[in-house]
Design a binder for these strands. Structure first.
Lengths: 364, 364
DNA sequence: TTGTACGCGTTATCAT
DNA sequence: ATGATAACGCGTACAA
């Protein structure tokens, strides 16, 4: 009988001469339970193949040593990492934070942990995050938006791992996606205001650079206007940071600019709309009598403000859940629908109304 | 000369007979560049040790093959994973989302990626997340709060990895922490209101179960009151979900309850305070004449609401940054201060004032 | 049911 | 400066 080949790792001694207790390995558990590492592994990965008595001993040994199977070793051995990556612009925006939270919960149920990366709307940063995640062997990827560094999707595809673009739904996209149709949503808002009789529009949006969702929104508005032979004056289109401050600033700029002033202002987020609303009030305008304002997202506060904000509701947690489901299905070898549309729901509250008569024939 | 021992992995054929192109390994890059894997590794990890000409060839080969060093292999070989874990209650709360975002940015600068876990205020879930992270070989851990499952910190300590408790600062805690002193902050708020002449207080907080920060806040209020020989009536202490709805509901409950009614209501979050403010207005109360209200966090909206909310500002991004710095220092072998205090700043706006006279001698 | 032994992809050591 | 090779910790054929 050949002597068993067994690697023995000597405990390193720390400078002060004490034993530096090392993180236990399967080997240690095996020794403690008086069995082999193979049985340790089986106890955790296919317990039914292990005799109950042995199983009990192994579990006890593992618990007493505080052993956890080292994921890197396992990943190398079986090719699975149980890690999924998600890349979003920023956690500072509730819509994305909520999405990530829902994905994390869905994956956690399946024992999958989530690597998170923020791009801050910088495609190069997104690229770097994706690269790092691929190197870490993520089994799937979710990424917000299609406007990415050239080659990013090829890099993912070369790894043959499932991926999905979230937040936006684009029927003609080459990528699987889960989200709502930004173009359609803003067309809906615009049409609603057109139906009320508005003819002069203001638009306050996030920067559309590197942001296909915002570009789609702008397109949606323009198209709805074009259908009525209308357009958007350059001074009535403001692009900037998504929060209250920029909403205020933009509204003031529009109304301090040349006439005609807008009778309706469409905003890209509820926060922008709230800013516009607050500034309109500060300027002595009455909403919706003098000015209609719409938001987007339906944050909790939208319903509470006075007057309650007309907006559009998107279930971001649902987007996160569906994205996770989509990726999980692919990981299970199933073939889910490549594109999943979530509907954005128009919520009419009290910041929209027909324009008052003195606006109906603006002095051009 | 012994023939070189070289493992050759045969490309597996996919069912349809086509070659399934596999993810490239260092071996493939080495072959393409006509050198050994050792040089490939060096090219990326200590480029100065590689001849410029060779380096160039290796980089070109790696780029053309799309090779990324597989992190699991690297982790196994050098014992470093470049992963750090963070466990928070929920991303749905801005304060935590902002913290995580700041940590992610700080770690990304050092090539470290972040594993994220949410506990939803459930210690068992936090425990499970920590366990999964340790198994994945995180090199450091940040976790919100000290109220954890017994044994959780021992589990971390056994792994000898740096960790830090965030959001709360407790001078007498056995754990390193980065945050502000919740007890002191709420004592400050309470003292301010006491100085204005208030004697009957309401308190609207998040649930204090499994939440040391909230428990500390409650204590802070109680202590400040006790210093003046005052107490808190049970019906004036409401615990519930941190958002607007619960603020409304709680305020109504207090004022529909038996007299005396509070002349000042202290809230655990700005959203709760906004809810209380809206409900107070709906009930015909004028703030701050009939009722003072304070929030906490200083969210963007706090300054915008009418009247602007008196609250306390915490720089959560700073907490995230400092926590990351603390962990990075430890990873670098430095010894940073074990406890880092961030100050919460009282921001007096317009929802606080002296109680009106009819409240000064409440009918008990 | 359990054990043996190899391989996963990389890095570090040592030799050249 | 570069190459050969032995770990790293685990999972899993295959053998017993």
């Amino acid at each position: 009988m050949r002597p068993e080949k067994m690697r023995i790792r000597v405990d390193r001694l720390s400078p002060d001469g004490e034993k530096a207790p090392r993180v236990p390995r399967a080997q240690d558990v095996a020794a403690a339970a008086g069995i082999s590492t193979a049985t340790v592994s089986r106890t955790f990965n296919s317990p039914e193949k292990v005799a109950p008595a042995v199983r009990k001993r192994v579990l006890a040994a593992a618990a007493s040593l505080g052993w956890l199977p080292h994921a890197a070793g396992a990943a190398l051995a079986n090719g699975r990492t149980a890690i999924v990556g998600v890349v979003i612009p920023t956690l500072g925006q509730e819509v994305f934070a909520v999405q990530v939270e829902a994905m994390q919960a869905a994956f956690a149920e399946r024992g999958i942990t989530l690597l998170i990366g923020c791009s801050n709307y910088n495609p190069a940063a997104a690229q770097a995050q994706v690269r790092a995640m691929l190197a870490r062997g993520v089994e799937a990827l979710a990424i917000v938006g299609e406007t990415q560094e050239p080659g990013l999707f090829e890099m993912i595809q070369a790894r043959r791992i499932p991926y999905v673009v979230t937040y936006g739904y684009q029927p003609d996209s080459p990528h699987p996606c889960v989200g709502f149709d930004n173009h359609e949503a803003f067309r809906t808002i615009t049409r609603h205001l057109l139906a009320l009789g508005h003819q002069t529009f203001g638009l306050i949006l996030q920067p559309k650079a590197n942001n296909d969702r915002v570009a789609a929104r702008l397109d949606g508005v323009r198209q709805a206007l074009a259908e009525q032979g209308l357009g958007l004056r350059p001074q009535h289109l403001c692009e900037g940071h998504w929060e209250i401050g920029f909403g205020r600033k933009s509204l003031r700029a529009m109304f301090e600019g040349p006439r005609p002033h807008p009778t309706a202002v469409i905003c890209g987020t509820d926060l922008l709309a709230i800013g516009a609303l607050l500034e309109a009030r500060a300027m002595g305008l009455t909403v919706p009598r003098d000015l209609s304002i719409t938001g987007f997202d339906d944050i909790a506060f939208a319903a509470e403000i006075d007057p309650p904000l007309t907006t559009m509701r998107v279930d971001n947690a649902e987007i996160g859940r569906l994205a996770a489901q989509h990726l999980l299905a692919l990981l299970d070898g199933n073939v889910p629908a490549s594109k999943v549309a979530v509907t954005a729901q128009f919520v009419e509250r009290a910041t929209t109304a027909a324009p008052s008569s003195n606006h109906l024939s603006p002095r051009l």
